[in-house]
Design a protein around this nucleic acid. Structure first.
Length: 635
RNA sequence: GCCACCCUAGCUCAGCCGGUAGAGCAGCCGAUUCGUAAUCGGCAGGUGAGGGGUUCAAAUCCCCUGGGUGGCUCCA
């Protein structure tokens, strides 16, 4: 029997072997680290018998797949420990490996898990791991498996098996614990050394709010203690970047229970930051052939009925009534843009038309989803609607994708892209959906960047490309989006006159680049840890004197900076220099301009930067042009 | 919206098993004039998220409401 390895090496074995045997033949150390294998491309246990020629790729702990297997087995170990400790009080459901660890969902009407029990569960896990229980795969018929789990009172498992298409299912057994599972798993519990339970949370059975609420225990596991420590340290660091914490510390924004939940209140520095972003946006849009427009905040409810929002989006909208006429507060900006389009005859020569609006919208988001600036009920989108001919569609989508790429590069963001297709609740014909989806897909493919497909997650009026940015804790937030729409132009009977003199239907693209300014600011704060680049810093420089002696001169320097358009503050208090520096440093001001007798005598300033280094002393005019230059380069 | 947890001065937090509230920072007043991350002293500041209950007695125990946090569902 011949086993072929990934490097092309072929090894011959006299009889049936397991990947573990193959590993052993290559070295004892490799055998110790082999946790699973890919046999002819399929993931399998390291103990799977191979009885014919096969290609075998060994999976070790150092690979991402190996780590997944490790964590998945850790999830079983946790479920095992929980069943040991709580027995029939809890039922097991599912427990996969996830990005930074794993979780397991339990159902119980009798017991509620709290973090206080984590130590106890971890201790039991450690005992089971030390017991070196072999983890064995078993295959059995579905009826038999259902019987087995029914007998154990594991009704969720029974339901899972009932819905599986195959005639046989695989189970994994370790000691007295058995779980329905596709695998693969570690050969033995002894491999599991370092794990830690992190939190409990509610989760719906099978992800539907109609189903039972389960208790999810989140945990993480690493092959090595050092890696766990590094991971926990990284979490601690991430907490310091939290935009809610920094937003308070830097006095950027707040929320008020009195004003209403999910409604951000922008303090002077936050409002300034926002304004800078919005100025940037206007400039960049004008540069790319967009026209700036403005629509009303409320529009008559009849119009929302016409657009389909009333039927499909009503539960997220706020309504108000004036003079017996019902109005909807806009949750999106497209309606007014379509009215502008329709306000006169359009020729194919006018297209594409790109209407841009920093449009403030209101959406009644469920209370439980609100999250600092990242999820709010009032927000401003850098929204545009592009009206074009079907022929122009591909170029327009590409143009938006380039726009996104260029802007994200300025901020230094990495991003992930995904395409979402037709959801259940939607309007429009199948053909239009297909055309639109294909157009987006083609454009995405031509960028050469990787993307994921998110089936059934589109907007109700069309498919979309989403761009996701990560926050400090690696949670993903949708920012840019491009949505293709054939339906609204139809509903509003938008037309253009073609070369042939006939009326044709334009295509509409909804798109945002930063997405919601609020969310973007939130991500921005976490990305820069509050140390905004000079061009975005609400305060670019703080002028500080060493003693009262230089107060007049420092005051004049401050006035000069202000007059030059630099966002400066002055700190002329009778305090020690180190005290003023400390405060400016905590406020994350890019430049601290120190003014003592030397500077006063020479007519200069000495700039201290956030990294603690000083620039050589220079004249005020020179400093101003330095700041201007950096800002122009978006530094 | 659902599940769990949390809510003490402007901010960060302390207060063991119920005996009736405390620190640091910020603020105010005064002194200090001191060159690269905290000068010293004093003063003031709390209907303990709000409401109800148990108790001789509640910040501490129970219930309701509100808000927050972590998730789930949903989404820019």
């Amino acid at each position: 029997m011949i086993i072929e390895l990934p490097d092309g090496q072929k090894k011959e074995f006299p009889a049936a072997v397991t990947p573990l045997d193959v590993a052993r033949s290559l070295g004892e150390r490799l055998a110790r680290e082999t946790v699973a294998a890919r046999i002819d491309g399929k993931l399998a246990d390291a103990t799977t018998p191979i009885s014919q020629d096969a290609k075998v790729e060994l999976i070790t702990l150092s690979s991402p797949e190996g780590l997944d297997v490790y964590r998945h087995s850790a999830a079983h170990l946790m479920a095992h420990a929980v069943k040991d400790l709580y027995g029939d009080e809890v039922q097991v459901t599912i427990g996969p490996a996830i990005e930074n660890g794993f979780y397991y969902d339990f159902f119980s009407e009798k017991h509620t898990f709290t973090p206080e029990e984590f130590d106890k569960i971890e201790a039991r896990m450690a005992e089971l791991a030390a017991a070196d229980l072999p983890i064995n795969r078993e295959v059995m018929g579905r009826e038999q498996a259902m019987e087995l789990f029914r007998g154990m009172g594991e009704n969720f498992k029974v339901e899972l098996i009932r819905d599986l298409p195959d005639e046989t299912v695989s189970l994994y057994r370790q000691g007295a614990f058995v779980d329905l599972c596709r695998g693969p798993h570690l050969p033995s519990t002894r491999f599991l050394k370092v794990f830690k339970l992190t939190s409990v949370a509610g989760a719906y059975w099978r992800g539907s709010e109609k189903n039972a609420m389960l208790q999810r225990i989140y945990a993480t596991a690493f092959p090595d203690k050092k890696e766990l420590k590094a991971y926990l340290a990284r979490l601690e660091e991430a907490k310091k970047r939290d935009h809610r914490k920094l937003g308070k510390e830097l006095d950027l924004f707040s929320f008020s229970e009195e004003a209403g939940v999910g409604l951000p209140i922008w303090h002077p520095k936050g409002a300034l930051l926002r304004m800078l972003l919005e100025d940037f946006e206007r400039k960049e849009h004008l540069k790319r052939g967009y026209d700036i427009v403005l629509g009303p905040q409320i529009l008559r409810t009849e119009l929302w009925m016409k657009s389909g929002h009333y039927n499909n989006y009503r539960e997220n909208m706020y309504f108000t009534e004036i003079d017996e006429q019902s109005y909807g507060i806009k949750p999106m900006n497209c309606l007014a843009h379509m009215l502008i389009y329709r306000s006169r005859m359009r020729s194919y020569r006018d297209l594409p038309l790109r209407f841009f609006e920093l449009g403030t919208v209101h959406r009644h988001e469920k209370s439980g989803v609100l999250h600092g600036l990242l999820r709010v009920r009032e927000f401003t989108q850098d929204d545009a609607h592009i009206f074009c001919t079907p022929d122009q569609l591909n170029d327009e989508i590409l143009g938006v994708l380039r726009f996104v790429r260029d802007v994200m590069a300025i901020f230094g963001f990495q991003y992930e892209m995904e395409i979402s297709t037709r959801p259940e609740k939607s309007i429009g014909s199948d053909e239009d959906w297909e055309r639109a989806t294909e157009a987006l897909m083609k454009a995405l493919e031509s960028t050469g960047q990787p993307f994921e497909i998110n089936a059934g997650d589109g907007a109700f009026y069309g498919p979309k490309i989403d761009v996701k940015l990560k926050d400090a804790l690696d949670r993903r937030w949708q920012c840019a989006t491009i949505q293709c729409d054939f339906t609204l132009p139809e509903r509003f009977d938008l037309t253009f006159v073609g070369k042939d003199g006939e009326k044709h239907r334009p295509v509409m693209l909804h798109r945002v680049i930063l997405g919601a300014i609020e969310r973007f600011v939130g991500v921005l704060i976490e990305h820069f840890e509050g140390k905004f680049p000079l061009w975005l810093a609400p305060v670019q420089a703080t002028v500080m004197n060493v003693t009262d002696n230089q107060a007049d001169y420092a005051g004049k320097v401050f006035e000069t900076l202000r007059a030059a358009g630099i966002r400066a503050e002055k700190d002329l208090r009778n305090e020690k220099l180190s005290f003023k520096i400390r405060e400016a440093q905590q406020a994350k001001v890019p430049y601290m301009l120190v003014i003592g007798d030397q500077e006063m005598a020479a007519g200069t300033v000495t700039a201290r930067m956030r990294d603690g280094k000083n620039l050589p002393s220079m004249g005020v005019a020179e400093f101003c042009s330095l700041v201007r230059g950096e800002c122009e380069a978006y530094k």
